[in-house]
């Protein structure tokens, strides 16, 4: 119900006014759509809340130092997630630098150097397509190339490289966006001062785009942390009672461990799975906070 004063004001604002019933209809429509959009927000928030409450109430009791520092076990109360945490960390050590160098390199080339022709357009289109390829396909690729052809075995290295390929398209697209959003005035001013392309790129564009690039990278890495399918494909292990000692070690990661626990018949395993999810969430939250922090810190320079 629209307020009468409001009606009057609106009518006054538009001298050639439609009749009053139309006005009511428009106001009603306005409210309905506001309601729909608010409902959409409320629904997703509610789902998230239910999920979080459920996981926290189930898992918090099992979350302690012992859980973080023990290996998996057939007894739920002795089982821990150490091997998976360390495995995830090791994988990131391989994935992050490889994905960063390849991804940002590709983005810089495509944005700054590539000529505008059909070949570039083809590459561009394929990168966008790759971003939508199901992760298990990357798992098959990793299995064929890294595990079998390059005989890396089911190692941290093979897993890390597979993950790097998986998130590469996301990093390329995000970095391209970041580079593109640098105002062309800065670029032109640099050229105008007599700087070369490399100088402009390295000293002007790259620093300006860095916050965006880093944010994209960290968000992509967060995705890699939560992926299970490609790693199961390349044969990451499920039970492992030692920590990786180099990039050729076998390993497991948190999502695999969590998935295994949730599929167990015994209810206690579902609880420690919830505890594992809390650890994973905390890790993701930490990474995303770092992304925000980096963005804010670096942005102050410009």
């Amino acid at each position: 119900m629209a307020l009468p004063e409001q009606d009057a004001a609106t009518v006054a604002d538009y001298p050639e006014v439609e009749d009053n019933s139309n006005e009511k209809k428009r106001q009603l429509k306005n409210k309905i759509f506001k309601g729909i959009f608010f409902g959409a927000v409320l629904f997703s928030l509610l789902m998230l809340l239910i999920l979080l409450v459920r996981i926290f109430t189930q898992g918090i009791g099992f979350l302690n130092w012992e859980f973080m520092t023990s290996f998996a076990s057939r007894n739920a109360d002795e089982a821990g997630i150490q091997a998976a945490i360390v495995g995830t960390f090791w994988m990131m050590v391989v994935t992050a630098p490889v994905a960063f160098v390849l991804g940002v390199g590709t983005a810089v080339y495509l944005e700054e150097y590539a000529p505008t022709n059909k070949f570039t357009a083809l590459i561009q289109m394929n990168i966008s397509n790759l971003a939508g390829v199901p992760s298990i396909v990357f798992g098959l690729l990793g299995l064929t190339i890294f595990v079998r052809e390059l005989s890396m075995g089911r190692s941290v290295l093979a897993g890390g490289l597979t993950m790097a390929l998986l998130i590469l398209p996301i990093i390329v697209v995000a970095s391209q966006e970041a580079i593109r959003s640098v105002p062309s005035e800065m670029r032109e001013a640099s050229f105008g001062m007599g700087a070369t392309k490399w100088q402009t790129m390295f000293r002007i564009i790259f620093p300006a785009a860095l916050p965006g690039i880093l944010t994209g990278n960290i968000l992509a890495l967060s995705r890699a942390i939560g992926e299970t399918a490609p790693l199961i494909m390349i044969g990451a292990l499920t039970y492992i009672a030692f920590l990786p000692d180099n990039v050729f070690s076998q390993f497991t990661v948190m999502p695999i461990q969590i998935f295994n626990w949730t599929s167990r018949p015994q209810e206690e395993f579902h609880f420690i799975a919830a505890a594992g999810i809390i650890v994973l969430l905390a890790m993701l939250l930490l990474m995303n906070s770092i992304a925000v922090w980096i963005r804010n810190k670096f942005q102050q320079r410009f």
Binding site: M152, G153, R154, S155, L157, N246, V247, F248, S249
Partner: peptide, 17 residues
Amino acid sequence: EEEASGSGEGSGEEAAS
């Protein structure tokens, strides 16, 4: 890194398989 680990424990590849 590969080389380092390879020489460290015989052959890294073997350990992995």
